[in-house]
Design a binder for these strands. Structure first.
Lengths: 262, 262
DNA sequence: GAGTGGTCTAGACCACCCC
DNA sequence: GGGTGGTCTAGACCACTCA
């Protein structure tokens, strides 16, 4: 019996799928009240069914405008072991991306930010937030936080193209060594949902990265939010031990042990 | 003006937070209709606000039973570069986990599964699905798919403790080399939501792993679904090239390039 | 200002758990 | 069988976009 649930939104998916498939990419679907009437369900139930296709990236809802059918997405693929900016990944695979909604703020380190950067609270910080767009839509939202003295005002005006990492790598000082990146999942908060043009609460892949230079100093930490379906991140996991030692940062310790070695 | 949204569910969070904090871990909240009345909102709005705390892991809703306050979760932390089973990670950090809902199935490789395993379609396969629980709740759902001839019936009866990886590592043949793991996010489908005791559509971290032996043969591929908040996966991303060469599998190529080397 | 999706209400019935 | 969370309805108002 458990196979044949009588939930309206499940039965609705098939019919809604037909409507979506019968609509060309870029075209608008009927309004929600009209579509609900056509399909014989309440608007709430229709919206529940639409969430399914929206999470798959087949449709996109825009408040005040309408619901649109979107085409097949292009995918940004990358191995994670190499530290590179989204822009660099995109360039490497020949995909055109652009930056949007760049927001540079100056703020003072509170306890949490200070701890993440291994500096005292109260130090001045620079926060750089930006959106990465493919031709069709926003696909990532990136926030960098770093001590204000690392990047000068002049550099921000002249040689800043959006990526803090790329700027630092280009400059070569401080000499960047590696990033310790934590992988998480989070529902989009209202403000992030807005700039990403998704629904509040939709799942996003989150990388929380701490950037170290060759002396073990923390240079930057960042939150990177990625829209599912547009990225393919790979990591190689080996049974042999991979050695990463950071003598300058005893509290940074990858607790890895050898399971088996050949 | 954009700061002061007049959405009921936002204003409700503070008051609902008080209710949750005033309730001991393990205790039950009032029923939804009652709580909605007490807080002066409709049940739909209350449920919207509750989703926020549920996604943070502070409460847990169980159909037919009630809504419960849960304590601070224990976190499974691991670097990703080392390939090890969830059981091994848990044991290493002294956390007790148990296996649940083990389901072993035999099936025939369709086109997709055959392609993933690099074998012809029609070959017999073994599929092992299981749930990993901490003391308080399910935290991961793991599915392994592998050619049927790799593990014998006898082994399944006698030396199988739940982890395909651990069984193969223990046996030492085939000799496991590494796993290529893709990182994704997905909303929980109904069946997975059920075994994980979460809400349908909740975001899960997904690892799609392909397991190779030292000769480059594909041994197994797997889907691992992780509940956010209970795991802390880290990966080191270096500007120096990390060399992983797999001469036997030319189609497996990590397209990594050196950005900068010191 | 017209039209869209976003949110909210009040009430109802259903599926599920447990006694 | 009683009580819970899960879903659904019909209608309403609000916030947003764009001509």
């Amino acid at each position: 019996m458990a196979e044949e649930k009588n939930h309206a939104y499940l039965n609705l998916r098939g019919r809604l799928s037909n409507v979506i498939n019968a609509t060309k990419a870029g075209e608008k679907l009927p309004t929600e009240p009209l579509l609900a009437k056509q399909l014989g369900v309440s608007r709430a139930t229709l919206r529940e069914a639409m969430r399914f296709f929206e999470s798959k990236g087949l449709i996109r809802r825009r408040q005040g405008v309408g619901t649109f059918v979107v085409g097949i997405p292009q995918i940004l693929e990358s191995g994670l072991e190499v530290l590179e900016s989204i822009e660099t990944i995109a360039e490497r695979i020949g995909l055109q991306v652009s930056m949007d909604a760049l927001k540079i703020e100056r703020l003072i380190a509170d306890e949490e930010k200070a701890a993440n950067l291994h500096i005292p609270a109260g130090e001045p910080l620079l926060q750089v937030a930006r959106v990465i767009r493919t031709r069709s839509r926003p696909v990532a939202y990136l926030v960098d936080i770093l001590p204000a003295n690392i990047i000068s005002d002049k550099e921000l005006d002249t040689s800043f193209e959006g990526s803090v990492l790329d700027l630092l790598l280009k400059r070569g000082d401080p000499e960047i060594a590696y990033s310790k990146t934590e992988i998480q999942v989070a529902g989009a908060a209202s403000d992030i949902a807005r700039v990403m043009e998704i629904q509040r609460g939709d799942g996003l892949l989150v990388f929380i990265g701490t950037l170290f230079d060759v002396t073990g100093r923390v240079i930057d930490y960042s939150f990177s939010y990625f829209l599912p379906g547009y990225f393919k991140f790979n990591v190689l996991r080996s049974v042999r031990q991979v050695q990463f030692v950071d003598a300058e940062n005893p509290d940074f310790k990858e607790d890895q042990k050898v399971i088996q070695s050949s």
